[in-house]
Design a protein around this nucleic acid. Sequence first.
DNA 1: CTTCCCCATGCCTTACAAAGACCACGAAAT
DNA 2: ATTTCGTGGTCTTTGTAAGGCATGGGGAAG
Lengths: 120, 120
Amino acid sequence: MPYKDHEIEKQYFTIGEVAQQFNVAPSLIRFWETEFDELRPRKSKKGNRLYTPQDIDIFRTIYHLVKERGYTIPGARDLLKQKGPQLKEKIDVIQSLEKVRKFMVTMKKDLDALGKAQQG
Amino acid sequence: MPYKDHEIEKQYFTIGEVAQQFNVAPSLIRFWETEFDELRPRKSKKGNRLYTPQDIDIFRTIYHLVKERGYTIPGARDLLKQKGPQLKEKIDVIQSLEKVRKFMVTMKKDLDALGKAQQG
DNA sequence: CTTCCCCATGCCTTACAAAGACCACGAAAT
DNA sequence: ATTTCGTGGTCTTTGTAAGGCATGGGGAAG
């Protein structure tokens, strides 16, 4: 459940929620914060990290580069400095294509099952 | 100077020559050989590595990905498996553009020098 | 009693470099 | 014209600094 603080209206996410979304440890998120200038979420009075959807986009981009494409952290950092904005768009496209693919896989499975039922 | 052995006619390059061309240590080239199936040069009877120009192209591709783009070795390996051929073309283009750029930089320098000479 | 903070330390892996042995090749010596 | 020797380059194996986090202590907030 999104973070709530006394005077904060907007919906933020905690580090634990972000960690869960990407299935990584909070320690990783904190570590990347020390490595990427771009990943500096706002903090509550107490000091808790407050992630906006934009922050999560940035995290997603880094995650994509480092975990899915196989960039080193310096490599991802350089790429991000140059092509940060353009990069986000590309990754959005990749993600929606991924969803389409999954949809088609399950559809194929259903069709196969149907075929067997009719045949047998 | 290219490697000479009793019965070998074709011009091969030694590991030392390749190392010099890219300004890396021979140990690195041997190490990458254990990491990339694509980089498996022929060997002389004695066991010395014999690099063809094609072998060097492959090395250049790996070098580009790992040293210039910041891929991890697994990342570069995956990319190479998928897009090995296409990748070479792209890197060729990048390299020639690099040469053009260098040319233009020196030209600019010359022009600046000329301008100062006329002015002063 | 869980989740967050910060900080320090621990720790496995990555990506090489160094060490030690071996071999061709040319010059010097027999 | 062999033999010897030295030197530079190569080989494989082993060592190691840095990279990339995870874990644990100590504490606050909810």
